[in-house]
Amino acid sequence: MLRLLIADGNDRAGRGRHVERCGKTSAQTYAGVLRSLDRDLACDLVAPADADAVLPAPVQAYDGLVFTGSTLHVAEGGDAVRRQIALMREALTQGVPVFGSCWGVQVAAALAGGEAGRNPRGPEYGFARNLAPTRAGRDHPLLAGRPPAFDAPAIHDDAVLVPPPGSTVLVANGRLDVQAIVIPYAAGQFWGTQYHPELDLDEVAAMLSLSAEAIVEAGLCRDEAAVDGQAEALRRLHADPAGQPDLAWRLGLGAEVLEPARRRREIGNFLDALVRPTRAARGR
């Protein structure tokens, strides 16, 4: 049985807002996705942004660590950020494989000597479009099964602006040069995506609603009513993705987003290509 630790990137306030909109925390979302990929997998959850957070077990007891998204900003620093960088440092130093989406990528980059901050090309709200593997990404196991171009759920203002020394960028698009990356650090490996392979369409809808003011400010919707309309369309499509091809067409969404197995591909690849081989190498 694999045992994974899931680190919720949000502070208490952020977790509260997420639960209000989604009915669960970001860490609980990841736990559900991981268990859907492996029914025998065990997940422990921790909120390392909190000063009183306690790991359920030493980090080296886990076969992998997963970092969720967050409303925090790496560039702003502070104890909530430093505690999360410290957890990732400890895991990678111990040789524990780490995966992260969005916030997790930015934390890993900051730890390894890169730079994360506000993307000067603007945010992505809803979906990252026309994602394309780099030359290195075409043959990397993180992207096994992905086509030459694809879309994925994405919600972010911040991004990795300068990759760390020794890292390998695997995916880019017109909005951002670092959409997926591999970062070696100490004895470990970080694999991650700026986009959110863990999010179902109803959760994308909830995140749009949470970000409505910022979406309007960015000029992506005329007003918050338009954001609500987009969110409602995604909720409807989530309820019946196969039975509403007209709605999928209007939203510009194909199988790489609509089919859970395809949408979550990077998470499954992380388990199969990094976590299980590392566990075997550690003699567990």
Rank of each mutant, 00 (worst) to 15 (best):
D246A: 13
P58G: 15
G188D: 03
N173S: 08
V96L: 11
R35P: 11
D177Q: 14
P97R: 14
P165E: 01
E20T: 14
E224T: 13
E90D: 12
A242C: 08
S101A: 15
R236N: 07
V178H: 05
V33F: 10
A132I: 09
D63Q: 13
G137N: 04
R121S: 04
L87Y: 03
C43T: 11
V98G: 06
R39E: 14
R21D: 10
V19C: 12
G192E: 01
R83S: 04
R264C: 03
P123E: 00
V74C: 08
R262I: 02
D240V: 10
V178S: 05
P141S: 01
L37P: 05
G188F: 02
T93V: 13
R39T: 12
H196S: 10
H18K: 08
A47H: 15
V54F: 12
Q230L: 14
S70C: 01
A255M: 09
I6S: 04
I183C: 08
E115C: 12
A280P: 00
Q189A: 14
C221E: 15
T278Q: 13
D228R: 13
V33Y: 01
R121T: 01
G14N: 05
V96A: 05
P163I: 03
H238P: 07
A42T: 13
T68N: 04
W103K: 00
C22A: 15
P120E: 01
R263H: 05
P245L: 13
Q60N: 13
P197Y: 11
G78M: 10
A172T: 15
K24C: 15
H140C: 05
T134Y: 08
E217R: 15
R282H: 07
G166T: 05
P184Y: 04
L176C: 15
R265Y: 06
A242V: 10
Y195T: 00
P147W: 07
G122A: 03
G32W: 01
A136S: 10
H73L: 09
A53F: 09
L92I: 07
N10V: 00
G126S: 07
A231I: 03
